[in-house]
Amino acid sequence: MTIALSPLSGGLLIGLSSMLLLLTLGRIAGVSGIVWGAFTDPDRSWRLQFIIGLIAGTAAIHAFTGKPLPPAADGSILLAVGAGLLVGFGTRLGSGCTSGHGVCGIGRRSVRSIVATLVFIAAGVATVALTMYFGG
């Protein structure tokens, strides 16, 4: 298997970002928690900055590298609502998402995060398999 350089270097940047946030503010770079905290936690400033940075960083990569924008997601608005509700409900109930559990939590060898990551990947794999089988 050849190493995919863009995904690998993108991953390195994500890891670096997580480490900088831990080093400077002592915080876990878990996007679900940061987004919810931006609306509910009095310590709002760094969280809003992080969200603006996420959007601006994405825009900057396309602007400076000429990487084409990905096509809009495939699916109905109803599906977007249902999937968004599940992602929001699930990440709050499970205390984290791909970044908080998958990148930061495994990085600090949290058993909860290792279990959560294995479970949400398995649930995602099963969901895609079922949608491909019944709808694809």
């Binding site: 996007v31 679900s32 987004v35 969200i51 996420l54 959007i55 997601a73 699916g75 599906l79 977007a80 249902g82 999937a83 968004g84 509700l85 599940l86 992602v87 929001g88 409900f89 699930g90 990440t91 709050r92 109930l93 499970g94 205390s95 998402c97 791909t98 970044s99 559990h101 909860r112 279990v115 959560a116 990551t117 479970v119 949400f120 990947i121 398995a122 649930a123 995602g124 794999v125 099963a126 969901t127 895609v128 949608t131």
Partner: peptide, 23 residues
């Protein structure tokens, strides 16, 4: 933790975004 991860994984598989990429 487990129930949350299951629900999150289902939504992730249905649409293709987790919170970071979505934002």
């Amino acid at each position: 933790l487990v129930a949350g991860a299951v629900l999150f994984g289902m939504g992730w598989g249905l649409w293709g975004y987790c919170p970071g990429p979505a934002v």
